[in-house]
């Protein structure tokens, strides 16, 4: 049996809102030690989502036997809209389930809402992601990165990320012209999440599809910082930390014709 209770329904709502525009169907793998993990790749096979909700994400978590819940995220999203952000949210599944029970509890009123979501058999291949040695790692406020991704998409289909030891530069070139934003590393002692950290082994210059970056920054609601790991001619990793665990996006770069 699975029973996972979130202190705030908003956490799962934000997670599903962050991934459902990229992937529609995905398997939620549940286990006592790892909590709930998801790996899903978008139809174009350009963007991969790796989600890890450790048991620490939950106020209470038990999973007696490993199980896989095949979920349609659009349907799950419809049910999650029914609860309030501050409600307790509990996911319940029997062993070998054909449905997932979703329970919202209002903390102040004696109101309990229950929904049952039909599960699906989802055939998906799993990709093995080896730990990569990255050329660069950037940690910055997620709101800043989100603004760049959204603003530059109006100018260009692509966003270039150029990292040197001294700075990270975001650059877009479009029909109307071009633009760039440069950040230099700095440490904000009063607000550590406002700091910008750049670790560089080798400079990189990579180009990514603006459309995918705009899907990725939907997760900015989950964490005030984002870590971007870049390697020449390889997929980039965009990571948002959860209270316990992470939401990661792997995005294949564009190449020169």
């Amino acid at each position: 049996m699975l029973e996972g209770k979130f202190d705030q329904a908003s956490l799962l709502k934000k997670i599903i809102d962050s991934i459902r525009d990229s992937v529609k169907l995905c398997n939620f793998n549940c286990s006592q030690n790892d909590g709930i993990t998801v790996q899903a790749i978008d139809d174009s096979r350009v963007l991969l989502i790796a989600l890890k909700m450790d048991p620490g994400c939950f106020q209470e978590f038990r999973c007696d036997r490993d199980m896989v819940l095949g979920l349609d995220l659009e349907s799950l999203g419809k049910i999650l809209k029914q609860g309030n952000n501050e409600d307790y949210l509990t996911l319940i599944a029997e062993d070998n389930p054909d449905s997932l029970l979703i329970v919202f509890e209002d903390k102040k009123k004696d109101r309990i809402s229950e929904f049952s979501l039909k599960l699906m058999d989802i055939d998906s291949d799993v990709l093995t992601i080896d730990d990569m040695d990255n050329d660069c790692s950037i940690t910055m406020p997620s709101a800043d990165f989100s603004k760049i991704a959204r603003d530059f998409k109006t100018m260009s289909e692509s966003l270039q990320i150029i990292v040197t030891k001294e700075s990270v530069k975001f650059k877009a070139e479009g029909q109307i012209g071009s633009g760039s934003v440069i950040f230099k590393p700095h440490t904000d002692l009063d607000n550590p999440d406002e700091s910008i950290k750049i670790d560089m082994n080798q400079p990189v210059n990579l180009t990514f599809g603006a459309k995918y970056l705009n899907d990725i920054v939907k997760a900015s609601t989950l964490s005030s910082t984002i870590t971007i790991k870049l390697t020449d001619k390889a997929p980039a990793l965009f990571e948002f930390k959860l209270p316990s665990g992470y939401l990661r996006y792997y995005l294949a770069p564009k190449f020169e014709d």
């Binding site: 790749i41 350009v46 991969l48 291949d125 990709l127 992601i129 692509s158 792997y250 294949a252 014709d257």
Partner: peptide, 14 residues
Amino acid sequence: SGTQGRLDGFFKVS
């Protein structure tokens, strides 16, 4: 501008 790469070339399917 440029050709969009795919993840399959980088990650192994298991």
